[in-house]
């Protein structure tokens, strides 16, 4: 059975793309066939983590939404970016990084239903075990639809007042939509806050915390030039992310 996993955060800058990319890498290392859709059409970025340049980007999600190509044609095999041989696969569906194309899709809008059809076709055609959806922050129509069809929803938050307020909105929406599994991931935690933050957050939202990731100089220094879990296989952050993978596969 394939699973759809949406990765969401209410606020931006929580490390959503980085977390999504690294979870995909860990899943592929465990032999899973993984798809990633970058639905952040207004400010795409996850393709950078897989070393996919603007020149190498053939068809994008934008082309699919405009009816120029099938969803399968937008899937880029980025497995080799892990640099180590893995038994699984990673297919990335990037959003366009061309200014004109971003402006056009925002101006003309698109049929949100097409996105969901695309997700289902992608799972079938690429025989995916897991489809990760890197969502747009905040709550809009696309996000609601992705959350509604998800088997697992991962909500990322930082230990910040603004994140706390917004995240409760997302958690409430997910409950109303009956998402089968909901997990919180606390990211970029300053070291002075690490102690006792897990139970505090579980209590606040009445939801499971799957991982607590400390602020990491190594992650910052990597600066999206590659995948953290591939470069630091024994780092505590990698170990925490593996806990999330276990929850996804459970």
């Amino acid at each position: 059975m394939s699973k759809i996993v949406s990765v969401h955060s209410f606020r931006g800058g929580t490390g959503k793309s980085n977390t999504t990319a690294n979870l995909a890498a860990l899943l592929a290392m465990q032999g899973q066939r993984v798809g990633i859709v970058d639905t952040d059409i207004a400010s795409p970025g996850i393709h950078v983590l897989f070393g996919l340049s603007e020149e190498d980007m053939g068809h994008s999600l934008n082309d699919y939404l405009w009816g120029k190509c099938s969803i399968k044609e937008t899937a880029h095999d980025v497995t080799s970016s892990l640099k180590t041989g893995v038994s699984g696969k990673i297919y990335l569906i990037p959003s366009s990084i061309k200014a004109g194309e971003i402006a056009r899709i925002l101006r003309e809008s698109y049929d949100v239903g097409l996105l969901n059809d695309g997700f289902t076709d992608l799972i079938d055609e690429m025989q995916l075990d897991i489809l990760l959806i890197d969502t747009h922050p905040g709550i809009n129509e696309e996000t609601l639809l992705s959350i509604a069809i998800s088997d697992v929803l991962l909500v990322i938050l930082r230990p910040d007042n603004q994140d706390y307020q917004g995240t409760s909105v997302t958690v409430e929406v997910a409950r109303k939509l009956d998402v089968p599994s909901l997990y919180l991931i606390v990211n970029k935690v300053p070291h002075v806050y690490m102690n006792g933050i897990g139970p505090k957050i579980e209590q606040t939202y009445n939801a499971d915390v799957a991982a607590i990731l400390p602020h990491s100089d190594e992650m910052m220094a990597l600066a999206s030039a590659g995948l953290f879990v591939a470069q630091y296989p024994d780092h505590p952050i990698t170990a925490e992310l593996k806990k999330v993978v276990a929850r996804i596969l459970a």
């Binding site: 793309s17 970025g45 950078v48 983590l49 990084i97 999206s224």
Partner: peptide
């Protein structure tokens, strides 16, 4: 930020 995703975008 001095991050590859920021630089490209």
């Amino acid at each position: 930020r001095p991050d590859a995703q920021d630089f490209q975008g």
